[in-house]
Amino acid sequence: MIIAERKTFDEIKQIVGDAHKILIVGCGTCVAVCMAGGEKEVGILASLLRLDAKREGRELEIIETTVERQCDKEYLEPLAKKVSDADVVVSLACGAGVQFLAEMYDTKRVLPGLNTRFIGVAEHEGMWTQRCMACSDCILGETGGICPVTICPKGLLNGPCGGTNEGKCEVDNEKDCAWTLIYRRLEKTGGLNNIKKLFPPKRYDVQTKPGKVIHPAYEKGEGKAHE
């Protein structure tokens, strides 16, 4: 899932400026799970803003709402009334959700409340780690299910650099060296031959931005099948 972190209160306070009526929109999917932008976090941010306004003697009205996901139009459409009543909208979705909301309500200032970090997993409670760069050309089948593009800071495809030390990474010795992990995993699963070949340079053409995927079933009526 997508992992995000809330921006600092000071930054959010600064970008909302002197708005009197703020709509905070949470997102009930990835960012709710990683405790950054779900219903509960909408409540926390609203309370912080209210308290701050009260302390400064400012009038401030905050409307809280959380939708299933902000990356799907059907969940954004019902927000029309609330959005139109607000001076500004703070979206607690990932960057994709913020943009979709801003696109749908393009006469309103829609502001991001989070910094989107990465695609990752819940390593343990309250801690998430990055696992995928969305590189569009997956090689996990050859690397024992460990992604060197993501886990190695340099994204090396053909083995470790000279900075690896006792299985740790030169960039951060708290982190594991991706290539030591890959080697050890393939030793166990019998796939070391996979990585003896020279992997060619990564193809960056397949990840030219902005990406677009059309499901084969929808190819003919591009965009229309949804409607």
């Binding site: 053909n158 083995g159 470790p160 690896t164 290539w179 030591t180 080697y183 003896k196 020279l198």
Partner: peptide, 17 residues
């Protein structure tokens, strides 16, 4: 190449490549 690399096997894999 780093002959004293620990562990040595992944280093030698790269050396041979």
């Amino acid at each position: 190449v780093t002959p004293e690399s620990k562990p040595i096997e992944p280093q030698l894999l790269k050396f041979e490549k």
